[in-house]
Nucleic acid binder design. Structure first.
Length: 245
DNA sequence: ACCATTTGACCAAT
DNA sequence: ATTGGTCAAATGGT
């Protein structure tokens, strides 16, 4: 219930996550068969793009802006990266998140009643996109089934490139540009895909960085080197929810 | 024949 | 030894 005393401490990430979750529920509602006025594709498109933006922000919140020194730690750092660059949400629609995924595994998890499914970005192979997610149904037998979805690493694939942050400047409203048949990629924003996870998205990243700096959470100069700093926000609000809307 | 999922084997970390 | 994540061969659908 009203546990507002720590309101100040509630992180931006938590709010973003909440927003994401709610949007996700809204989308589920709209897509549900029994919705009287069927949503237009424009509606869904907008929703998707919004979700996209939120998940981007979420991702960036957790990203330590490029560890420029690709030092000897790199062998171990991949897992660390995955760890740091991951976030978890609870949703009733684990699949409609604006991306295509290819399932590559399923496992029973110790305490869990349901198996966990493992997905990779569907375009990961061709484009070197490392984005990953896992989906796990929660035991709560609520009417709309609840799933815990964990995302790991941002998308670097084309879909992402034509991303909402750029496409969002209105005007593009008309079409579901999901077809992907368009090979005419306007900007060569990310060319080297290897560590593009950090290089390619420097702009929004620095935006977020700026926000955090402004919030006094981070000193502007050494914006890195501390893998376990303020960046390591773990979005596990899970235990703290039990009331809706 | 192609492609995505399934499923147990395998591996790294605990 | 146990657990979670990934691989890859087998499977099944189109």
């Amino acid at each position: 219930m009203a546990d507002y005393k720590d309101d100040f401490a509630v992180s931006a990430a938590d709010h973003l996550s909440k927003g994401y979750e709610r949007l996700t529920q809204l989308r589920a509602l709209l897509l549900s068969s029994s919705t009287e006025p069927q949503p237009t594709s424009l509606t869904i498109d907008l929703l998707d793009k919004s979700l996209f933006c939120l998940s981007n922000a979420l991702s960036q919140l957790k990203i330590s802006p490029r560890t420029s020194g690709a030092s000897s730690l790199d062998v171990h750092s991949n897992k660390r990266k995955r760890r740091l660059h991951s976030w978890t949400i609870t949703t009733t629609v684990p699949h409609f998140d604006g991306h295509e995924w290819r399932k590559y595994g399923q496992k029973r998890i110790h305490g869990a009643a349901f198996p966990r499914s493992y997905y990779k970005c569907a375009h990961g192979k061709e484009q070197g996109c490392l984005a990953t997610k896992t989906v796990q149904q929660l035991e709560s037998s609520a009417d709309p089934l609840q799933f815990e979805v964990s995302y790991s690493l941002r998308h670097t694939c084309k879909d992402m490139e034509a991303d909402p942050l750029l496409a969002m400047d209105s005007s593009t409203a008309t079409s579901l540009s999901l077809s992907g048949a368009q090979e005419a990629s306007p900007q060569p924003l990310l060319s080297d895909l290897q560590d593009a996870n950090y290089e390619a998205f420097s702009e929004p990243e620095s935006l977020m960085e700026a926000m955090l700096i402004e919030a006094g959470e981070l000193n502007a100069e050494q914006n890195m080197e501390q893998p376990f700093g303020v960046w390591d926000i773990d979005l596990e609000w899970a235990s703290s929810h039990g009331h809706d809307i």
